[in-house]
Design a protein around this nucleic acid. Structure first.
Lengths: 213, 213
DNA sequence: CCCTTGCTAGTCAAACTTGACTACCCACGG
DNA sequence: CCGTGGGTAGTCAAGTTTGACTAGCAAGGG
């Protein structure tokens, strides 16, 4: 699965109540259109789908400024909140190598209590180690790794990537245990969405780092 | 885009002529169902789509053993070969952080001449550096990185990942320049597909490393 | 001889993603 | 006062992905 549901649930949740364009705007503010599949179509689709699944509640809004397309405001339900935390915990613990999930998970990590965040990240390192062991054990033929030829470079890449990520995760655990950032229940949360009247500094940036992907 | 087209084109190309099930079997042999979206539906869809786009040529085969579903054999066209190398070169040079593309690209890298492979990988490191510079420059607010709060950890992850990959790429360049592996035009190519009568050692493996993704 | 199991080969509906497009409104220059 | 550029809010068709399902045949056990 992609990160779109997590991102949309997280955005709606932070607003309390939001219509599609607001969510879309938040995700753009977060730069999510650069590192995830957060395009208009996907966002509106996810909203409708999750409303159908009772994760969001849709309020039909009569267009106050007569005319314009029919707007719908969404509110997260209890089941939606449950699903949100389920997705967030899964994204934090599972080693799936997808940047969009990782980035979204870190963005929302402060919605969890500090102790749980640390525990989940430790579980993550455990899974990375497990995966690493499985690769080395499972994909090396009996006659030694030379038999793989250049295919061995793929495992090499996987191991290298896994090690780099384990290292980064340990660093993050250290910083969180050292008291960095503000987690759930620790006072004023980090402001992650745009206020009504606030302009989006990233909305029309002429150059973004991932343009050459 | 996903790696499915590259994988399917590469598989058909190595066979000369293949029907869907053969391609599917190769990809399973390569473990591609583990690290990419190489599921039956995707494979057959890609074959049909690329046949429609004249990248593959479809031969309708009258079912020799009367009955059974209608089989179609595919052969790569000139345009398909062009597209194959275009996709391969792009996968090797562009920094897009997707494991499936990277793994597929390395699997097929020996289809290129050695010198070109090295050149493409060097271009890749250049792009990684460029991306790294763009991230550090673009996403750090004027008041210093502390303003980002935990969001700064996302950039931290990106930078860490980019550095790890640059390092791995440099290592690979070194090994290739040092004479490792057998590239296009250097004699017997590495055998990457299953022969007709060969059994697939990975087909029914009871445990695979990515099962807990 | 029949029946289950497994392999070969592939289809299908439902969900998701993409990129382009629509429609309305407002501000502002000429 | 007119049109045009930009912001707001969202739709749509086409393409892609997923996971479950179908259907024929062969081997082998009871």
């Amino acid at each position: 699965m992609s990160a779109i549901r997590l991102l949309v649930l997280g955005a709606v949740r932070q607003h309390g109540r939001a219509h599609g364009y607001q969510v879309r705007n938040d995700l753009e503010y977060w730069g999510a259109h650069e590192w995830s599949n957060a395009k208009p179509g996907s966002i509106y689709h996810a909203l409708k789908q999750m409303a159908k699944q009772d994760l969001l509640h849709a309020h039909e809004i009569a267009p106050s400024t007569a005319g314009g397309p029919p707007r719908t405001e969404y509110e997260i339900t209890d089941r939606g909140t449950e699903e949100y935390f389920r997705l967030l915990r899964e994204a934090l613990t599972s080693y799936d190598q997808k940047m969009d999930m990782k980035s979204a998970a870190i963005g929302f990590i402060v919605d969890l209590p500090r102790a749980e965040a640390v525990a989940l990240l430790k579980e993550r390192t455990r899974r990375i180690e497990e995966w690493r062991a499985a690769v080395t054990e499972h994909y090396v033929p009996e006659d030694g790794p030379e038999q793989l030829g250049h295919i061995g470079e793929i495992m090499n890449l996987w191991i290298h990537t896994a090690d780099a990520e384990a290292e980064w995760t340990l660093g993050l655990i250290g910083r969180i245990e050292g008291g960095a950032y503000t987690f759930a229940g620790e006072g004023d949360p980090f402001v992650g969405v745009l206020a009504e009247d606030q302009e989006n500094p990233y909305a029309t940036a002429d150059r973004h780092p991932e343009d050459d992907r």
